[in-house]
C-alpha cells in the first residue's frame, strides 16, 4: 500500500490561513489501512482545526467527508458534501489523490494534509516499512524477494558495501542491511550464484530518469468510450 503520515498540524493551519469554509476529505483506501487518512483521522483533524480556530479567532467552519478512493473519478459521485462549496479541501489522500482531485476539479483548492512517504506494509503494531520504490524494473527475482533499490540506503545492485554493520546499515541503527538479508536468503535458497553475477548499471529512465512516467495500453484505450488525456 501507499503509506503516508499526517503533516505537522501547524503546517496544515498555515495552509488554511484566510479560509473560512474547509472540507477535510478522507480517503478509504491505502491511507485508511495505514491509519493516517481515513474517516476517523479526517474527523480527528477536523476537531483539531475547529479547536484551533476557536482559540485563535480564525472563524473556520469545518465539515468532514470520506470517499473510497480519491484517485478514481468513479467515486467522485459519492461525496456527501459537495467540495465546490468550500474555500479549501484538506485531502487526507496520498499525493496521487491530491494531484488527481486537483486535475479533475481545477477550480478547487485541494491541500495536502498528509506527507506521502513510501510503498510499504505493516510489519509490527504501529510500524510500516518500505518494500518497493516503484523503480519500473523489478529485480526481486534475483534478490530473494528483498528489494535492494528500496531497502538498501544506496540502492546498490551488486552486493554489500563497507557500511554493513552487525546486520544493520550504518546509516541508521534500526535499518537492516538489505544486502546482508539478500545474501542470507539466497544462501538459504541455494541461489548464491545470483549474488555472484555482475549486475550492469541500471537504466534509470524506468525510474524517474526521463521525467514523468506514463502507462499506455493500446488494447484498453481502444475500448474506452471517452478517451482520456
Amino acid at each position: 500500500m501507499i503509506v503516508a503520515e499526517l503533516k505537522p498540524f501547524d503546517e496544515i493551519m498555515a495552509m488554511l490561513a484566510g479560509s473560512r469554509k474547509v472540507l477535510v476529505l478522507g480517503c478509504g483506501s491505502c491511507v485508511t489501512v495505514c491509519l493516517s487518512g481515513g474517516q476517523k483521522q479526517a474527523e480527528e483533524l477536523a476537531s483539531l482545526i475547529r479547536l484551533r480556530s476557536q482559540q485563535t479567532g480564525m472563524d473556520i467552519t469545518v465539515d468532514v467527508d470520506c470517499i473510497t478512493r480519491q484517485c478514481d473519478k468513479e467515486f467522485f459521485d459519492n461525496f456527501k458534501f459537495d467540495p465546490r462549496g468550500y474555500d479549501a479541501v484538506v485531502s487526507l489522500a496520498c499525493g496521487v489523490g491530491v494531484g488527481f482531485m486537483s486535475r479533475e476539479m481545477p477550480d478547487l483548492r485541494i491541500l495536502p494534509g498528509l506527507n506521502t512517504t513510501f510503498y510499504g506494509a505493516n510489519t509490527a503494531p504501529g510500524e510500516w516499512k518500505e518494500f518497493c520504490h516503484g523503480c519500473g524494473d523489478c529485480v526481486l527475482a534475483w534478490t530473494g524477494g528483498i528489494c535492494p533499490i528500496a531497502r538498501c540506503s544506496k540502492s546498490l545492485i551488486n552486493g554489500t558495501c563497507g557500511g554493513t554493520n552487525g546486520g544493520k546499515c550504518e546509516v541508521k541503527p534500526e535499518m537492516d542491511c538489505a544486502w546482508l538479508l539478500i545474501y542470507q536468503r539466497l544462501r538459504e535458497l541455494g541461489k548464491l550464484d545470483e549474488y555472484r553475477k555482475i549486475r550492469p548499471a541500471r537504466d534509470w529512465r524506468k525510474d524517474r530518469g526521463s521525467g514523468v512516467r506514463r502507462l499506455s495500453r493500446q488494447e484498453l484505450s481502444q475500448i474506452d468510450e471517452e478517451p482520456r488525456q
Binding site: 551488486n158 552486493g159 548499471a201 541500471r202
Partner: peptide, 8 residues
C-alpha cells in the same frame, strides 16, 4: 547519487 556502484 549512486547512479553506479563500485562494480559498475
Amino acid at each position: 547519487v549512486y547512479d553506479l556502484d563500485s562494480v559498475s
